Simulated assay, not measured.
Amino acid sequence: MAQLTCSSCGLAAEDDDLVCRGCSGNLSRAVGTRYPLPGPPPHLPEAGEEAPEVCPHCGAPVPVPGNQVCVACQRLLAEVRPPGTERSGERAPDPGSTRRDVPSALLRIRFGAVERTVTPGSTLLLGRDPAAHTTRGLLNPYDNVSRQHATVGLEPDGTAWVRDEHSTNGTFVNSSPAAAGARTPLRDGDVLRLAADCTLGIAVEQRGEGGRP
Rank of each mutant, 00 (worst) to 15 (best):
D101M: 07
P103V: 09
P103D: 08
S104M: 06
A105M: 11
A105I: 12
A105C: 11
L106F: 03
L107Q: 03
L107D: 06
R108K: 11
R108W: 02
A113V: 12
V114G: 00
E115N: 08
E115T: 15
R116E: 14
R116V: 08
V118M: 07
T119V: 13
T119P: 00
S122P: 05
T123N: 10
T123M: 14
L124K: 08
L124Q: 06
L125K: 04
D129R: 08
A131G: 13
G137C: 07
G137I: 05
G137F: 09
L138F: 06
L138N: 01
L138H: 07
L139N: 02
N140P: 00
Y142G: 09
D143H: 11
D143Y: 11
D143V: 11
N144M: 10
N144T: 13
N144V: 04
N144P: 01
V145I: 11
V145A: 09
V145D: 03
Q148C: 13
Q148I: 11
A150I: 09
T151L: 14
G153F: 04
E155P: 00
E155D: 15
P156I: 05
D157M: 01
D157F: 00
G158H: 07
T159D: 13
W161V: 12
W161L: 12
R163M: 15
D164Y: 05
E165W: 02
E165G: 04
S167C: 11
T168E: 06
T168S: 12
N169L: 04
G170E: 08
G170I: 00
T171D: 01
F172V: 08
S175T: 13
S175R: 11
S176H: 07
S176Y: 00
S176M: 08
P177Q: 11
P177A: 12
P177S: 10
A178H: 01
A178R: 04
A179M: 10
